[in-house]
Computed example of a mutant assay.
Amino acid sequence: MRTLDFYFDYRSPYSFLALSQVRKMDVEIAFHPLEIGDLMKQVGNVPTSITCAPKGRYVMTDIQRWAVHYGVSLNWHPQLLEIDASRLLRATLVAGQLGAMPTAVEAIFNAIWSAPAPLATAAEVAGLDAEELAERMDEPAAQDLLDEAAANAVSRGVFGAPTLFVGDEMFFGNDRLHFMQGHLARAA
């Protein structure tokens, strides 16, 4: 089975949409959480959907179109702008140390984009002790993991989310999945 490296930030609805399709593929997913704002600063990228109001408005329509196209329920968490995404990303990396990263990724993405729920329940859904996770994700070691994740992403040429790799072949955005599927088919 081929391994797919999946670089994402929970705040990216396109990451959620891409994952909804990648889950259906015959691949093993290696998750790489990253703080998108930090990454973009490091590589000199600018979030044009934030800096350009007309594009920002269009993106909202585009996201809904993709959700319909994929048959995915997209229900924005009512406190999305208040969520400390860095903390969730650190929690995900700690969950990875505990052997539960895929389950944590699924639970957190669903809590934010599919079935909005208190994020504390995401730890429970992932089968983790919420208190232990909360304690460990706020330790300096968890921030070190997040910084290392960003450095790894930068070294691979990642400039946004979602970014997916099959080996050294990079695919950016949920709208490039068909190219990735073609690559996987040719490599099989």
Rank of each mutant, 00 (worst) to 15 (best):
W76C: 01
V105A: 13
H69F: 15
D168C: 04
L145A: 05
F165G: 14
Q64R: 15
E82Q: 09
G71D: 10
G160T: 05
Y7P: 12
L80H: 12
G173T: 07
K41G: 06
A150G: 10
A95N: 11
D84C: 07
Y58S: 03
V46A: 00
R23K: 15
Q79D: 15
R57N: 07
T48A: 00
K41E: 10
Y7R: 11
H69D: 13
E148F: 07
T48K: 04
A134S: 10
S114Q: 14
Y10K: 02
H69N: 12
E135C: 05
H183I: 01
A126H: 11
A107Q: 07
I112Q: 10
F171G: 01
E106L: 09
Q97L: 11
F172D: 00
H77W: 14
V72P: 10
Y58C: 00
L146V: 02
A141R: 14
L184N: 10
Q181I: 15
A142S: 11
V22S: 05
I108D: 04
A67E: 01
G160L: 03
V46C: 00
Y10T: 00
V59R: 14
G96N: 05
K55Q: 09
G37S: 10
H32F: 05
H183K: 09
S73L: 15
S20K: 07
Q42C: 09
G96K: 05
S15R: 02
S12Q: 03
N174W: 04
Y14C: 05
W66F: 08
H32V: 00
Y58N: 03
G44Q: 09
E82H: 02
R11A: 08
V105F: 13
I83K: 02
S15I: 00
A153M: 04
H32E: 01
M137Q: 13
P162A: 04
G167E: 14
L81S: 08
H69T: 05
D168H: 15
G127W: 14
L19E: 06
